[in-house]
Amino acid sequence: MDKMKVNYEVMLGLYAEFVLDEAIRKYKEEHLYLEIDNALAIGDEHKFLQLTSELKELRS
């Protein structure tokens, strides 16, 4: 019975880690989109290319 409880706690911990990782990834992606929009608005090509590269890396 204790082994099942330990397995459950491990699985619950892994799920919590997955949810947290996904939330952080989504936050970073949204932040990058805002920064990309800002770079486009001010015409900063270098910053735009840098940020789109970061976004591509985050998505892969």
Rank of each mutant, 00 (worst) to 15 (best):
A41M: 08
M11F: 12
E22G: 02
S53I: 03
D44A: 00
I24R: 05
Q50I: 11
D44K: 00
Q50E: 15
V6H: 09
L14K: 14
D44Q: 00
L40C: 07
Y27A: 13
D2T: 06
I42R: 12
E22P: 00
L49R: 15
D21W: 11
I36W: 02
N7M: 13
L14W: 09
L51F: 05
L34I: 01
Q50N: 14
L55M: 06
I24L: 09
G13S: 05
L20I: 08
K3N: 15
F48W: 08
N7S: 12
E35N: 05
E30W: 06
Y33H: 15
E45F: 11
N38F: 13
G13R: 05
A16D: 08
T52Q: 10
R25E: 08
L20K: 13
E29N: 07
L51W: 04
K56A: 10
I42H: 04
K28C: 12
T52C: 07
E35H: 04
R25W: 08
D2G: 09
V6S: 08
E17W: 11
M11V: 07
R59D: 01
S60H: 10
Y27L: 10
H31V: 05
K28L: 15
E22R: 10
I24M: 08
E57G: 01
Y8F: 13
A39K: 02
V19C: 08
Y8I: 06
A23H: 09
H46M: 05
E54A: 08
E30Y: 03
I24K: 12
F48N: 01
E35A: 07
V6D: 05
K56R: 13
V19G: 03
L14I: 03
E35Y: 04
R25P: 01
E9W: 10
E30R: 12
L32F: 06
K28S: 14
L14C: 05
Q50G: 01
R25I: 03
E35V: 00
L34A: 10
